[in-house]
Simulated scan of single mutants.
Amino acid sequence: MVITGHWIDSSWKLQKRVLSLVHIPPPRRGVEISDAIFKCLKEWGIENKIFTISMDNASNNDVAIRLLKDTFSMSKNLVCAGKLFHVRCCAHILNLMVQDGLSQIVDITNNIRESVEFVNRSDGRLLLFADIVQQLRLPGRKLIYDCRTRWNSTFEMLSCAIKFKEVFPRFWDREPHYNCCPSEED
C-alpha cells in the first residue's frame, strides 16, 4: 500500500509526497489497513493534521476509514465533524463508470482487441498490415494493445484502430486465418 500526503505549503503551492510503502499481507482487512495508515501518520507526526483520506471503494477500505474516523473523532481533530473525512477516489469512480459504459460494446472491443492481437502476433502479419496502410497512404503503421482494466488504454486502442478501419477488410482479403475483422458498423 502506498500512503501519499498532499498539502498546501506556505507559498500556497500544492505539494505531494510518498510518505510510506507498506506491505500488508493477505487477507488485507480494514483493521490492518487502518493500523498501517495510523502508524505512518504517527511516524511523520501528522496524526493531528489530517483533513481527508481518499481511497477506492473496496469494502476493506470502508472499514479502515470507519476505524480511522473513530480514532480521530476521539481527539476531536476532524474538520466539519468528519463529514469530509472520506473522499472517494474520483479516478476509481470514473473508471467504474467508463467500464460500465464499455460493457455495452464489449463485443466490439473484444473484436478489435482480437484483431490487434492477431496482427501483432507475427512479423509477417505486421508487415502485411503495414503494406496495406502504406498503400492507402494512412498515417502511422501500427496497432496498439490495451490494458483491459484501464479504460484510457482501451480508448487509445480503439482510437488507434479506427484510423485503420479501411485496412481491416483489405487485411481480411489477404490473410486466410484472420476471422475477427470488425464490420463497418463496428
Score class of each variant (00 low, 15 high):
residue 145 Y to R: 15
residue 128 L to A: 04
residue 115 S to H: 00
residue 121 R to I: 13
residue 136 L to K: 02
residue 149 T to L: 10
residue 116 V to Q: 04
residue 156 E to P: 04
residue 152 N to T: 13
residue 156 E to M: 12
residue 122 S to D: 07
residue 132 I to S: 03
residue 124 G to N: 15
residue 160 C to V: 09
residue 124 G to L: 12
residue 138 L to C: 06
residue 123 D to Y: 07
residue 149 T to F: 03
residue 112 I to R: 05
residue 156 E to A: 09
residue 123 D to W: 08
residue 160 C to M: 02
residue 120 N to W: 12
residue 148 R to S: 14
residue 112 I to K: 06
residue 111 N to T: 14
residue 128 L to Q: 11
residue 140 G to C: 01
residue 142 K to Q: 09
residue 139 P to K: 06
residue 114 E to W: 04
residue 154 T to Q: 05
residue 154 T to C: 03
residue 126 L to N: 07
residue 139 P to F: 02
residue 122 S to Q: 10
residue 121 R to Y: 11
residue 132 I to F: 02
residue 128 L to D: 10
residue 115 S to R: 01
residue 128 L to C: 08
residue 148 R to H: 12
residue 112 I to L: 10
residue 153 S to Y: 08
residue 125 R to L: 10
residue 150 R to N: 11
residue 146 D to T: 05
residue 144 I to F: 12
residue 115 S to G: 00
residue 122 S to P: 07
residue 158 L to A: 01
residue 125 R to S: 11
residue 153 S to T: 14
residue 128 L to G: 08
residue 119 V to S: 00
residue 130 A to Q: 12
residue 141 R to M: 04
residue 122 S to G: 07
residue 123 D to E: 06
residue 155 F to I: 12
residue 142 K to Y: 01
residue 141 R to C: 07
residue 140 G to T: 08
residue 157 M to K: 02
residue 110 N to R: 13
residue 126 L to G: 10
residue 159 S to H: 06
residue 133 V to Q: 09
residue 135 Q to H: 08
residue 160 C to T: 12
residue 152 N to F: 01
residue 135 Q to S: 11
residue 128 L to N: 11
residue 117 E to R: 14
residue 147 C to T: 15
residue 157 M to P: 13
residue 156 E to H: 08
residue 160 C to F: 00
residue 117 E to F: 10
residue 126 L to M: 04
residue 123 D to N: 13
residue 122 S to W: 05
residue 130 A to Y: 02
residue 128 L to H: 03
residue 128 L to M: 09
residue 137 R to V: 07
residue 133 V to M: 08
residue 143 L to H: 01
residue 122 S to R: 13
residue 149 T to P: 06
residue 152 N to H: 04
residue 150 R to C: 08
residue 124 G to C: 10
residue 118 F to C: 04
residue 131 D to W: 00
residue 120 N to L: 15
residue 145 Y to H: 15
residue 136 L to D: 12
residue 117 E to W: 10
residue 159 S to G: 09
residue 111 N to V: 08
residue 158 L to K: 01
residue 119 V to A: 00
residue 146 D to L: 01
